[in-house]
Nucleic acid binder design. Structure first.
Lengths: 198, 198
DNA sequence: TCTATTAAATACCGATCGGTATTAAAATAG
DNA sequence: CTATTTTAATACCGATCGGTATTTAATAGA
């Protein structure tokens, strides 16, 4: 099929590696030389496959969301189990991801919210868009719970979504900062008490 | 008193300006040339007064904590008013600071927790130390409340301190990310409901 | 006024930055 | 075997990086 010289590095693998490097070291902390060395794809290959540094970061962040964020959000928004179980499972999954030693610590989206707050505007917008999707998933799930009578009719689902969206930010930062599991569990346990019961 | 040529830029003012620049743009996002231009102190002056870039960042972060963090924490830990009032006042103050348009957005300490997670170890340690002081202030205040009977005897003050420490992280990120006031108030309002009543 | 002292200002260092032009290698199609 | 295509690999670009050596300006004390 392909005619020319075979690629040494699969672009998907290079994107995965780039994602981890940006996630760990941030936009300014990661150089194109770093990326070339880590991915095994020389710089001209990176530019040919992904565009400039900003485009690569954007693709890396999108890849993160598609691979690690979106599946969790889909399960959160759609899982039919008892509300408290679904919420806690999601927060536990966020914690596990933020503390996972086989990946960079924290959450790449949350890191980007901080890191890209004065960066090229498209990067900031992208991070905020992914952040908004988390809020939307919580909102969907709380609305579902209300329809199903798991929440009182007067429960403020928007406020609950804001609150739990905030808890994810807290867990992500704590994971990044190396907080121990017990401290994080305290946050989750107390946050769960906010969910109103009939 | 001073014998030589008078200084053009007061080192305290240069430190204040450096703090704001690091706070806004992070460690890697701020160059020594940027700092020289913003402070009005030429690069050799910066190195003579503060040491290298890492030392300047360290002094800038410490300055931030001394000026903006420590006073709030002292009031939190020592204020005698009703517990709920003191906690809410503190969270409101954090929110106001994180959203203050006359300063960079967010909290410099929280930004550093994210930004310095793989940086020269001393910077990461410093950010964590300031983070721990916030936890300690909450702990002090909840212990005081317990002694004074404002909290039930079986209240878990450590868990409460972890939880509210986490809320500050959430508020700081939300402020940095440009969240609107209403969303942040939702987080605060719901977090307040976690405080047990007698 | 002369000297010592302090700091500003400029110029400069090698290294690295993001990004690209150029060349060499490896495959297929004829 | 040759020509073409696709990629790798190297070298290179001007700009900027963190950091410093050197020179010049401005003060106080003698």
């Amino acid at each position: 099929m392909g005619r020319g010289r075979p690629r040494k590095t699969d672009p998907d693998s290079a994107l995965e590696t780039s994602m981890k490097l940006f996630w760990e070291k941030g936009f300014d902390g990661t150089s194109m030389n770093d990326l070339a060395a880590a991915t095994g794809m020389a710089k001209p290959g990176l530019y040919a496959n992904f565009g400039d540094k900003e485009a690569l970061y954007s693709k890396a962040l999108t890849h993160y969301f598609d691979e690690l964020g979106s599946p969790l959000l889909d399960e959160l928004a759609r899982s039919p189990g008892p509300l408290a179980v679904v919420i806690r499972r999601f927060l536990d999954a966020v914690t596990a991801s933020a503390r996972d030693k086989t990946n960079p610590s924290g959450c790449f989206v949350v890191n980007s919210l901080i890191d890209c707050a004065d960066r090229p505007a498209p990067l900031e917008d992208l991070a905020r868009a992914f952040d908004a999707k988390r809020y939307a998933a919580f909102l969907d799930r709380f609305r579902l719970a209300k329809r199903q009578g798991e929440l009182p009719a007067d429960a403020d689902v928007g406020a609950l979504a804001d609150f739990f969206g905030g808890q994810v930010l807290a867990l992500a930062v704590m994971g990044r900062a190396g907080a121990d599991r017990k401290s994080i569990d305290h946050v989750i346990d107390m946050a769960m008490t906010v969910i109103p019961t009939d």
